[in-house]
Design a protein around this nucleic acid. Structure first.
Length: 177
DNA sequence: CGTCTTTGACCCGCGC
DNA sequence: GCGCGGGTCAAAGACG
């Protein structure tokens, strides 16, 4: 199911990052970067075993943008202020949609997006009590670009790690500049 | 047999 | 109110 041989296979003709930006997160603004800095992306990355993420300048041209907040409105008290979850969009150049990051995800939906002939897949972390979601989307403009949008933070260590060494190797290559 | 994927239906916010 | 678009549920099937 997962084709690791074609993992991060790079192709020529680097598309502009703006294409990604306009494809999503156009309704909400790109603010709240500080919230991400404090506990969002860094926390996620540190749990992945990475200390600093100041430069995600991997040779495979992997970039990330930080975008809109999402309503996580649990339907509690109406007087409560709405809690919005930050989302972290990952743009990865890959030929496979399954970008396994070490966590175990369960797919719970797939919808076709407008202006995009590729469907968008919705995943959720299977760990109990972990409400982290992610959606994987492919751009119509550039089929080689996969956008992975994370939502929430993992509050547990990574499961499923030592079952595929090629995968681990690829991960190490990503986070070692 | 347990876990995860598939897929249509359902829900909800929003604009007209 | 209604339709549309995006997000989620859940039953049934696939798969190891």
């Amino acid at each position: 199911m997962e084709n690791y041989s074609t993992y991060f296979s790079s192709s020529s003709s680097t598309p502009p990052t703006s294409s990604l930006t306009l494809s999503m997160a156009d309704s909400h603004a790109y603010n709240e970067f500080q919230g991400i800095k404090s506990n969002g992306f860094l926390g996620l990355m540190s749990q992945m075993g990475v200390s600093a993420v100041s430069n995600i300048d991997v040779p495979q041209s992997r970039s990330f943008i930080v975008g809109s907040e999402t309503d996580v409105n649990s339907g509690k008290k109406k007087g409560e202020k709405k809690i919005r979850k930050p989302r972290y969009a990952f743009q990865t150049r890959s030929q496979v949609d399954i970008l396994d990051d070490g966590y175990r995800w369960r797919k719970y939906g797939q919808k076709a997006v407008k202006n995009n002939k590729f469907p968008r897949s919705y995943y959720r972390c299977t760990h109990q009590g972990c409400n982290v979601k992610k959606q994987v989307q492919r751009l119509t403009k550039d089929e080689a670009i996969v956008v992975t949008t994370y939502e929430g933070m993992h509050s547990h260590p990574i499961e499923k790690s030592t079952d595929n060494f090629e995968h681990i190797l690829s991960q190490m290559q990503i986070y070692t500049s």
